[in-house]
Nucleic acid binder design. Structure first.
Length: 373
RNA sequence: GGCGCGGUACCCAAGUGGUAAGGGAGAGGUCUGCAAAACCUUUACGCGUGGGUUCGAUUCCCACCCGCGCCUCCA
């Protein structure tokens, strides 16, 4: 996730909203009623094209009995609301009041991104009426398509139930990290299910994500620390190219992350086999790492910044990290013990390291890889 | 009630009119002093249920069941 270029507030953009409403007024998309300004949906025949809603059954005034305002049609929505007693309001060219819900999005999006956006995302619950109204406002004012592609994300479930305040089944990142789950595992768990699927968030799923991330990280470590023969004709470069191609194809198909991950794991397995059989050459390392870099640009789990992220949120500071130098010295001692076949001592040191969160892996060539849990 | 999304192995999940990707977990095995990692084998004659179309359906059509969202306010 990259930091956005702009972080903006609706309250800093009241003039932009007012200007947009004025544009709509000039084109007679609006009418006033009791100090509020409404959007006249009858003037925008394409209304409903996004959510495929059919307005023919909706009658004017059908559901407006307890509506305080007079509207021409039940579906018309407020662009600008007359002030209510005791409520904050702005003094503007179009009168006193405050903006309607939808206008801020149209005004701000077009200000920073232009009159036609490439991609507009949001939760599926916003498709109607919010996004539908954004379209009506924006296209009414500009006469141009507002958005090329809409991406609507499904809602998630928690342990098979819908997430709700009354059920109390929602978690903050802080909750999850407090339970020992890593930021990378959470990112993976959320990203591994395609966005249009209803993701069922479970702790079991988080554990599975943790294991999957470890599998990929183990591969990255092996790539970084392993010794491979030079001058081999392995074909791994072509394999990496195919993996990258499949990975991209998956994402290009409506962000099918499941397919992209399958391509990734296929490659990891093939490369591991090549390593096990000695047919993975030194020249292949770069190609494999390039693939992982491309993968990580999307999933951001290989590069381990978990400790850093946790620190930012106030976790982990209390726990003293074992220093690299200390780990190396303990490993040297263990290797010495192993050479004299003193396995009791060797295992004792391994246990000592494990207690400090250091996992070690012996390899055939006598070298030892280690990582922090 | 209307509109929409979904129901695939123990769990997560891809997918197609022609016989079920990938990950996790379990079991067995290879490697190892032992581990770990990695690799191999194994776990859906089956893809919510019942009909239909077809040479053939998980994939198309119809009906039904279940889960979720929107259809009112607020954002």
């Amino acid at each position: 996730m990259e930091t956005p270029e702009y972080r903006i507030r609706a309250t800093d953009h009241i003039p932009d909203m007012v200007q947009l409403i004025e544009r709509l007024q000039k084109k007679t998309f609006t009418y006033e009623s009791e100090g509020s300004i409404y959007y006249r949906i009858a003037k925008f025949p394409e209304y409903g094209k996004l959510s495929k809603i059919d307005l023919t059954g909706i009658q004017a005034g059908a559901r407006v009995d307890n509506d305080r305002y007079e509207k021409e049609s039940a579906r018309d929505f407020a662009l600008w609301k007359a002030p209510k007693p005791g409520e904050h309001f702005w003094e503007t060219e179009i009168g006193k009041g405050r903006p309607g819900w939808h206008i801020e999005c149209s005004a701000m999006a077009m200000k920073y991104l232009g009159e036609t956006l490439d991609i507009h995302t949001g939760g599926i619950d916003l498709a109607f009426p919010h996004h539908e109204n954004e379209i009506a406002q924006s296209e009414g004012a500009t006469g141009k398509p507002f958005v090329r592609y809409w991406l609507h994300a499904e809602h998630l479930l928690v342990e098979g139930e819908k997430m709700s305040k009354s059920l109390g089944n929602f978690f903050t990142m802080r909750d999850l990290y407090g339970k020992g789950y890593k930021p990378s595992a959470l990112r993976y768990a959320l990203a591994s299910v395609p966005y249009r699927r209803q993701l069922n968030f479970t702790f079991d799923g988080l554990k599975q994500a943790t294991s999957s991330v470890e599998r990929i990280r183990n591969f990255a470590d092996r790539l970084r620390q392993g010794k491979f023969p030079a001058g081999l004709k392995s074909g791994m470069k072509q394999r990496a190219a195919k993996a990258l191609n499949d990975f991209d194809a998956g994402l290009a198909d409506d962000l099918n992350t499941a397919v992209a991950l399958a391509a990734t794991f296929d490659f990891v397995r093939e490369a591991n086999i090549a390593m096990d059989t000695g047919s993975f050459g030194q020249e292949d390392v770069a190609a494999a790492q390039e693939f992982l870099a491309a993968f990580d640009q999307i999933f951001a789990v290989v590069k381990d910044n978990d400790a850093e992220k946790l620190m930012e949120l106030g976790f982990g500071a209390a726990q003293e990290q074992a220093s690299d130098a200390w780990v190396e010295s303990r490993l040297a001692e263990r290797q010495a013990a192993r050479r004299r076949r003193d396995f009791a001592k060797s295992d004792e040191i391994r246990k000592e390291l494990a207690d400090r969160g250091i996992i070690i892996e012996d390899s055939k060539d006598g070298s030892v890889r280690w990582k922090r849990k």
